[in-house]
Design a protein around this nucleic acid. Structure first.
Length: 486
RNA sequence: GUCCCCAUCGUCUAGCCCGGUUAGGACACCACCCUUUCACGGUGAGAACCGGGGUUCGAAUCCCCGUGGGGACGCCA
């Protein structure tokens, strides 16, 4: 508790000391026991936003006291996910896991045993903790009595005391009774969550605890612990939870739910800024009708009082929509880079081997059309392979209209005379052909598109022709023609 | 079972604090327009104040009670 004494001793110079004392220090404290959950990401985000908004410090602390379930793989996943989402931390383990930065470490609880031991001794010495059944319990102050607990089906000892009052930045005043001693060190000697959480927040000088509402009922324990340790608790802000969308069922999002893991969005090539933007909107809004916003604007506008009190249901469709909007506005260079990264992970991707200039042209056609990078492979197959799939449903539909076979023949015959130098030139060629035969552009467009791409979904026929080139178009048209009956 | 939190369109939400709005926006859905397919885009439609009591001239807004939803009740975090 040295900082506490320090605060008192520097009382003579409150002005100069104030900036340091009032600096916001928030932390995100995940445990590496599973995949990185979307709810965790949102909690991290709100902490990060608050730190950046206030010019404070964002701390990453690893709560790895559960030796059974910890894994290095999940630990690395935390670093990677935060980094991918663009949430940098000022103190904590370095993103590569090698070493730490910050003056209040270690930042992994597994390395803070001596500190917990120290604080345990303090409580023991003060008579606020005792041993029972090999474990160390925190002792509440007040008159004791025994009562049968229906839920746990056993008699328990309770303590008569005043309710804990929590002044929550988001919930307002919350009162909760904390009337049972609780374990702070297990009989195996390891400290439990409530204790390490509080000790770490004290020693790391955390000023604001921003966490999920599921912790609200733990907070009374934590407040008692702060009191027992003689420390004023930090500011609490309990944010609403993310619930399943109606299609997914009831309750809060769990790891098993589709779309619950950050890893999934990374694999599906979502843009991290779109995901972050969406997550920010779950339980917060800028106060006007804006939804799609650069992160700098979110940082500037974000504040704790603006956070909602009610839980929000996760909507994959809205996320997808935001993602599309972001994708649409990417500069060509970034889109190309994203596309290259995507194709590098695709099996049998002719795209990865394609000529760079050609690849760029194809991507220029695809960018304004696709809704997500994950569609890129399917959307562009026929640009990179001759054995592209043919959509039989589309084929059946196209073949019933007019006389597509005749149109195809006419087009093949006329193609040699086409000017392939630009979309407009190709369009003129097609229009001239249609006019000559007293028909419309669409009469040729539908069947040509089918023959060349195997589907009715895609870029403009002119752009498609131009990029594919006359020879390939010609070959595909002829190849398709011979498969037609009669 | 006990305790805590929450409650506006299907979903995210504005409005609530400081009572008077045709209760606004977005996603989704539907229609139409644009169009050379498919998208994007544009226009429009449908869609909500959980219920009941109070207070008030007047309640989405303030109060109470129900109900509903969520969370917590571990030697997990």
């Amino acid at each position: 508790m040295r900082w506490f004494l320090l605060g008192v001793s520097t009382k003579l110079k409150p002005q100069s000391f104030r900036p340091l004392m009032s600096q916001v220090r928030v932390r995100f404290a995940p445990s590496p026991t599973g995949f990185f959950h979307i709810g965790s990401a949102r909690t991290a985000l709100f902490n990060w936003l608050y730190a950046r908004h206030t010019g404070g410090v964002f701390i990453l602390r690893i709560e790895d006291t559960d030796k059974e379930r910890n894994s290095e793989r999940f630990l690395q996943l935390i670093y990677d996910s935060l980094t991918w989402l663009g949430m940098d931390w000022d103190e904590g383990p370095k993103p590569d896991g090698k070493g730490e930065r910050g003056d209040f470490g270690p930042y992994r609880q597994s390395q803070r045993g001596a500190i917990y031991e120290d604080y345990k001794q303090k409580l023991l010495a003060a008579g606020r903790a005792y041993e029972k059944d090999g474990a160390i319990w925190f002792k509440l102050l007040g008159e004791r009595y025994r009562v049968f607990d229906d839920h746990r089906k056993k008699e328990v000892e309770k303590v008569k005391c005043e309710p804990v009052v929590i002044d929550d930045k988001i919930r307002g005043r919350v009162e909760r009774m904390e009337d049972e001693d609780f374990v702070i060190f297990r009989s195996d000697g390891n400290p439990v969550f409530h204790f390490v959480n509080v000790v770490d927040d004290i020693t790391m000088k955390v000023s604001h605890i921003i966490r999920g509402e599921d912790h609200l009922s733990n907070t009374s324990k934590h407040v008692r612990l702060y009191e027992g340790l003689g420390v004023t608790p930090p500011v609490f802000a309990h944010i609403p939870l993310i619930l399943k969308s109606p299609e997914m069922g009831q309750g809060k999002m769990s790891k098993r739910d589709k779309g619950a893991l950050i890893e999934e969005y990374q694999q599906r090539r979502f843009l991290p800024e779109a995901l972050v933007n969406y997550l920010a909107l779950l339980g917060w809004n800028p106060g006007d009708d804006r939804e799609k916003m650069p992160i700098a604007d979110i940082v500037r506008l974000f504040d704790l009082p603006g956070v909602n009190q009610s839980n929000a249901k996760f909507d994959p469709k809205k996320l997808a929509h935001l993602n599309m909007a972001y994708l649409l506005e990417q500069p060509a260079e970034r889109f190309i880079a994203l596309a290259k990264a995507y194709f590098a992970t695709q099996p049998n991707a002719g795209a990865a081997l394609a000529d760079d200039g050609y690849f760029r042209e194809v991507m220029a056609l695809a960018q304004p059309k696709i809704k997500g990078l994950e569609e890129l492979g399917g959307y562009t197959v026929y640009f990179f392979a001759e054995d592209f799939p043919v959509d039989e449903k589309v084929k059946a539909k196209v073949m019933t209209k007019g006389d597509p076979k005749a149109r195809l023949g006419e087009l093949i015959a006329a193609l040699a005379g086409f000017d392939f130098s630009s979309d407009i030139a190709i369009e003129e060629g097609l229009k001239a052909l249609a006019a000559k035969n007293g028909l419309g552009f669409g009469d040729y467009q539908a069947v040509a598109r089918l023959a060349v791409s195997g589907t009715n979904v895609g870029p403009s026929i002119t752009g498609m022709f131009r990029v594919l080139g006359r020879d390939r178009v010609q070959r595909r048209l002829e190849k398709f023609l011979v498969t037609l009956p009669g």
